[in-house]
Design a protein around this nucleic acid. Structure first.
Lengths: 190, 190
DNA sequence: TTTCAAATGTGATATAGGTCACAAAGCTAC
DNA sequence: GTAGCTTTGTGACCTATATCACATTTGAAA
């Protein structure tokens, strides 16, 4: 499917835009392709875009002082990702985003998003909905973190996103669950 | 300060409303007073409102099968709280909200919020901003959970919200940090 | 002022998960 | 096909935190 069509169907679930409006909105997005392993956002850099995934799989992650990686989010097709904190607050990135597989995305700058939200009430409605969904998901994950053990969280993740099992290596799954790869491996093997 | 004035100043930071618009928006909120210990939302009930805190301190929390409590959020003046998952998705509450101190709040129903967002672009802008802030905060907390030990998280919490130290008992702080009250106590004592 | 419940401190013990070290598979690129 | 990464498995040991039990302190209500 074409990029414009994917974005259209994604937005149409929430906000109804005319074809003209959609064309206008779409004109603010810039398509980009990345290879597996390529970096999209690097901690320390300025962040001016967010990314809508058309194909492939990205990860957003934090690297701590001991160089340990924590994965905030896997981004599959029709998901949005960025360092939202840096993007909204105009600070340097503390989060990295890179490609687990080859990927195609649509980028939109923070200021273009704000412009569109301001010009088109519908678009603001869409973005409010999108962030709501993210907020509720983040709260759920936080609760699961406090309440459930690793095995439960692993199975919960795979039930929710079975496609990750084939695409994402286990060390990255472990970094998402917040445990060592050894512990994850031992859940089913040792 | 008067309820209307508190809400006005809170919204005005983000979206400019005329006095007429503000009066209209305010007319959809219903003031309520609660006593310390009173329950506002109980797991299992239907949820139709969200709450803007005028005074006092609330907590939103989850109780698991072993009756262990996990606190999602403390809500201080000018904070918003509810079971947002249940509210947006029209499902029964899984989260409880109750009063740590006597409290005054403004309630707005989900449908009135959606109506106002639809009628006034500005109001939709405000609520998008609010949820953005919550989303970014939730992601930060998640990261801190994965990356930092209890002591660090405790000090981070008190640095961010020093007023909690005097208002909120340590067993509730522990339930927010996701550790046992004994562990929290031992951080500085045993 | 007394009384009772809530909040806090602390010892002993158990356990989930971390860390380090090394080995074995699996992929990828030439 | 083979050299060299990346990913995965696993043993041995360590540590943070949980859990249970009980004592002490604090604070609010009568």
């Amino acid at each position: 499917m074409e990029a414009k069509e994917i974005l259209k169907q994604h937005i149409a679930k929430i906000a109804s835009l005319t074809d003209d409006q959609l064309a206008y909105v779409f004109s603010h997005f810039k398509p980009r392709s990345f290879k597996k392993g390529q970096s999209i956002i690097t901690a320390g850099d300025a962040v001016d875009c967010e990314y809508f995934v058309l194909s492939g799989c990205l990860k957003s992650f934090y690297i701590n002082d001991d160089l340990k990686m924590f994965i905030l989010q896997f981004a599959m097709p029709t998901w949005w990702t960025s360092d939202f904190n840096a993007l909204y607050n105009h600070t340097k990135a503390t989060i990295n985003v890179d490609c687990i597989t080859d990927a195609e995305v649509l980028c939109i700058t923070n200021s273009d998003r704000e412009k569109l939200c301001n010009e088109l009430h519908n678009v603001e409605h869409f973005f409010r909905w999108r962030t709501n969904k993210g907020y509720v998901a983040a709260q759920k994950r936080l609760l699961s973190f406090m309440n459930n053990n690793v095995k439960y969280r692993y199975e919960e993740l795979l039930k929710l996103y079975p496609e990750l099992y084939n695409i994402v290596p286990k060390n990255l799954i472990a970094a998402y669950l917040g445990v060592s790869r050894e512990t994850l491996s031992r859940l089913y093997h040792a």
